[in-house]
């Protein structure tokens, strides 16, 4: 027999109270009451809320949000500050709303580098390591968090040499020039990683930190999503998908499931 295989049986709903009227209507409309099969614990009361709270979303706030979770797993203080400053240039605060700094992106990056992804836990890391053609992908013996550390080291020396200052002390315009040179690989020496690979890693992490679910430490208060009207974790659009134009929906994060 297969351990853990729970098929063909409905499981207990996460909330036992009597479903309210809107939930009952929805379940009827979408046919969810059927047979009980596969509509398992995930449903609980989750569907109801996504239907009830469809008021126009509140605008994104630029006010920084802090919490007891705001501490570091990987970076030292200098690395954190450099990453935060660089991410802010990639995704700056503007009239649309907060930038990477207020969104907590540097915390996101710190946590990613400290976790399985930063340690390449699910990547093929056996040798030999050979210079690759561009069509063959990264062939580095280094882990991502080692590459990131060496990338920051390279950024630091570049700024020292060129401006005799730390990256964080440069004006925004100068920071952009440094990042542009780094992206282009224009006389930008680094150990173990090319400056353009490091830039790409930093850029991708920044975008992830802006738009990933807030559970990972970035996208504070779902402000990344709010700036683009992305509603996050919604259980159903079955009633809205045939509507013309952009339907505005109050966003929800995965945390909403925990309170069901």
């Amino acid at each position: 027999m297969l351990p853990g295989l729970k098929l063909g049986k409905s499981s207990k709903p996460a909330r036992s109270k009597e479903p309210d009227e809107s939930r009952r209507k929805f379940l009827k409309a979408s046919g969810m009451t059927l047979g009980g099969l596969v509509v398992g614990g995930v449903f609980g009361g989750v569907l109801t809320d996504s239907l009830e709270k469809n008021q126009a979303p509140a605008p994104a706030s630029s006010k920084p949000e802090t919490s007891l979770q705001d501490a570091l797993m990987f970076f030292n203080q200098e690395q954190f500050k450099m990453t935060e400053a660089a991410a802010e240039r990639i995704y700056p605060v503007d009239e649309n709303g907060p930038g990477a700094k207020a969104l907590g992106v540097a915390f996101f990056i710190d946590h990613q580098l400290a976790g399985p992804w930063g340690y390449n836990a699910r990547d093929y890391m056996m040798g030999p390591f050979v210079q690759a053609q561009t069509t063959q992908g990264e062939q580095s013996r280094l882990k991502r968090n080692e590459m990131f550390t060496l990338g920051l080291e390279g950024l630091k020396s570049y700024c020292q040499q060129k401006h005799q200052k730390a990256f964080t002390e440069l004006e925004g315009q100068q920071q952009d020039e440094v990042l542009t040179a780094m992206e282009k690989g224009d006389k930008f020496p680094m150990r173990g990683v090319t400056s353009s690979s490091f830039f790409n890693m930093l850029k991708n992490l920044t975008i992830e930190g802006v738009y990933a679910d807030p559970l990972y430490g970035g996208n504070r208060n779902m402000n990344g999503w709010k700036m683009r009207n992305f509603p996050g974790n919604q259980m159903s659009y079955a009633q809205q998908i045939t509507k013309e134009g952009l339907v505005q929906i109050q966003p929800k994060s995965l945390q909403a499931h925990m309170s069901e």
Partner: peptide, 14 residues
């Protein structure tokens, strides 16, 4: 093994 219950936190792009 897998079941639909494993997708409790499914709407997670990352």
């Amino acid at each position: 093994s897998r079941s639909t219950e494993d997708y409790f936190m499914d709407h997670d792009e990352l």
